[in-house]
Design a binder for these strands. Structure first.
Lengths: 236, 236
DNA sequence: GCTAATTTGTTCGTATGTATA
DNA sequence: TTATACATACGAACAAATTAG
């Protein structure tokens, strides 16, 4: 269980950034210094630094050193509009999920166009309604390859699908391509959401892939537009 | 042109993915095979593969091999990592930029709250209107640290600010934090954009950082909601 | 302005560990 | 069990950018 050396260094640096030992816009110790501190090779130090750089926390500059990136805290940014995740995590507000639809489908041409699953595949179709502070503000329209998520039930979907897939089934997820757009609500949005006069919804289309490249999930999250916030860091 | 060996290999693999030689959901040659093909060390091959993995094009699976990720093409990409000019060129769209405001400001408390620049700093404030296919659909509200972008003019801003910063001034940009939300148009949106009855705009708040961690740009891109698309790949 | 020292970038070769087939 | 494939790690050397003197 002795984790890898580079993760030790990764966590050490991360901790020192978080507690202010390594302040923003300043340099962390040089690779050679870190190499001596941890008694490892320079390659191992570099691996930890590269990881933190891809997190957007560090930036290596040739000949100069490795700098700590200044970050704007997200909760500071949201002047008035609060993100759901934050709201539910911080205040642990009334967070409720209901599942009006849980069905098995065969992919036809129309579904293929929407989900990009191969025609003929058997899939689960689940609609989940997310309610926060007694308002139904998110509609998740989920499509899973049945063959991959075999064993998924409504009560699992009520909790967390990803926890089930990763911990219970040992499925490895590589990542997901997300496409955000703003559209008028469809019939299901009108039926299930508390739109409160909002005539548009923010839609996050999510194509999730396994480690071997297989597309196994397509989800459309429909957010009531006034409650939608999305954050990401993009390297140039 | 051969800058580095690992970039050669990176481009070789990328090309083979794009032209179908390495199909989605299948394995590329093993690290040892690639090592022999290019007569390099395995480390160099791994560096190329790691880069492509962080692009979301490959996925390494311990003991199995390296798989090509299946990707859904996004035909219309705006608001992503790329600049307006890059995105327009890629999608070969007709675009035009006008600049109704180009002014110098000192950061006061109100501006500090919005842009997060330190109070007292001198900044450029630029408003740019983006016209695509003869419709004014994007309003860019830009704030730049004057000290960093010294020499920036309206005619440069008309073309591409980033091209000027990176190529002419040699400024290295690490990346940017983006916050997306949907809000009612403000007075400037109503004044400058062809809203065509749209009563909401999609807003991309962009905090851009230099390689040494300094925040040097804050931009709010206001997109007419029906013309807004944002794409990103998130690794898990 | 020049040289030397420092710091990151690239590359090599080798060895051992761990997951998969 | 054995062979293959990726993961981690070490040590070394030289290149390139920057800084210190």
């Amino acid at each position: 269980m002795a984790k890898s050396r580079y993760l030790e260094i990764y966590n050490f640096i991360k901790e020192n950034i978080n507690n202010g030992t390594y302040p923003p816009e300043e340099k962390i110790p040089s690779e050679n210094q870190l190499k001596d501190i941890f008694s490892v090779s320079r390659n191992t130090v570099r691996k930890a630094i590269d990881l933190l750089a891809s997190d957007g926390l560090l930036s290596s500059v040739h000949g100069k050193g490795v700098f700590v990136m200044k970050k704007i805290p997200v909760n500071f940014l949201l002047g008035g509009t609060e993100s759901f995740k934050e709201a539910s995590l911080k205040n642990s507000l009334k967070y409720k999920t209901s599942i009006p639809i849980f069905e098995t489908l065969i992919v036809n041409e129309e579904l293929n166009k929407k989900t990009h699953f191969p025609i003929g595949e058997t899939i689960y179709h689940i609609i989940r309604i997310r309610e926060i502070s007694d308002e139904k503000v998110i509609l998740d329209d989920n499509y899973f390859l049945k063959e991959i998520v075999e064993g998924l039930t409504a009560s699992i979907a009520m909790d967390s699908v990803y926890e089930f897939l990763e911990n219970k089934k040992g499925i490895k997820i590589n990542g997901a391509q997300k496409i955000i757009s703003v559209e008028p609500p469809n019939e299901e949005d009108k039926k299930y959401l508390d739109l409160r006069g909002n005539n548009l919804v923010a839609i996050v289309k999510n194509f999730a892939y396994l480690d071997n490249g297989t597309l196994f999930e397509y989800t459309e999250s429909h957010h009531r537009s006034d409650k939608f916030v999305f954050s990401s860091y993009a390297k140039r």
